[in-house]
Amino acid sequence: MLMFIIRRLVQTVPVIIGVTFVVFFIMQLVPGDPAVLLAGEGASKDTIEAIREQLGLNRPLYVQYFDYLMNLANGDFGVSLKNSQPVLDEILVRLPITLELALFSILITIVLGMGAGIISAVKPYSMQDVGVMLVALIGISLPSFWFGLMLMYFFSVKLQILPVAGWDSLLHVILPALTLGAGGAAIVARMTRSSMLDVIRQDYIRTARAKGLRERLIIYKHALRNALIPVITVVGLQFGALLGGTVLVESIFAINGLGRMIVDAIRMRDLPMVQGGVLFASLIFVIVNLFVDVFYRFFNKRIELN
């Protein structure tokens, strides 16, 4: 197991280098010249050239990339073009906020999704199953920006029980997390249901029945643990989608997180900020996937042998 984790960690290194490569070069393709933007409208050619010189933007790309890598290795993510703050500091301020949002969202995805899936699977084709699956279908189909606005309108404007936007208390987390987690929850619910239905047909469930166990114990002890194995993978994938979603949700609810930071930086052509933000988001994704793999392996030790 330890060997596996180490091997898996080693494998992430080329992935991360690949990410830096992609992040760096995609940024070069983005239209718009940061030097021009920084110099402001109507600046003379010389001024722009001077800024370029100052930022090192006039050197060959591969030199810039290598430089970038070396700086990264030293923990230097560059300086924001906009406010001259170190990118890393800017990110570290916002990272906890986004992580908190992501964590609550994934919690909602898991709890709501699995719960609904189990309720559906226990009595397949019953009213409760059809109802839950209908809601799940709607959940998958709804665009999150619309869903977020609807939640905001209903709970904050109409009922006035939850704050509209911002990020001060735990109450502020509820609506954005729900917006972000709902789509994933719907997918997880459908996956849990089909996985449960598959497991319930297995021979070992019949064995459990033949033992005289109660139906509840059969479901929660014998069926669920096996059914969750494929669901874990789906949850892991959902986490990726969720990171992408933070960009939108943070904008809607005016949360000063990593997602919004990237959006703002893109708008400002603040290259180092965008690079740093995307890099961090990628890092989180890689780490989460690592966890999912280890988790999956823990749950399903048979993989080792087969």
Binding site: Y204, R206, A208, R225, N226, R302
Partner: peptide, 24 residues
């Protein structure tokens, strides 16, 4: 019936490979 199953009347099945719960 549950008190009979596995207690007074027990059963073994054909497929030993799939009749045991793989994660317990």
């Amino acid at each position: 019936m549950r008190k009979v199953r596995g207690n007074e009347i027990s059963m073994i099945f054909q497929e030993p490979m799939t009749s045991l719960n793989p994660v317990i």
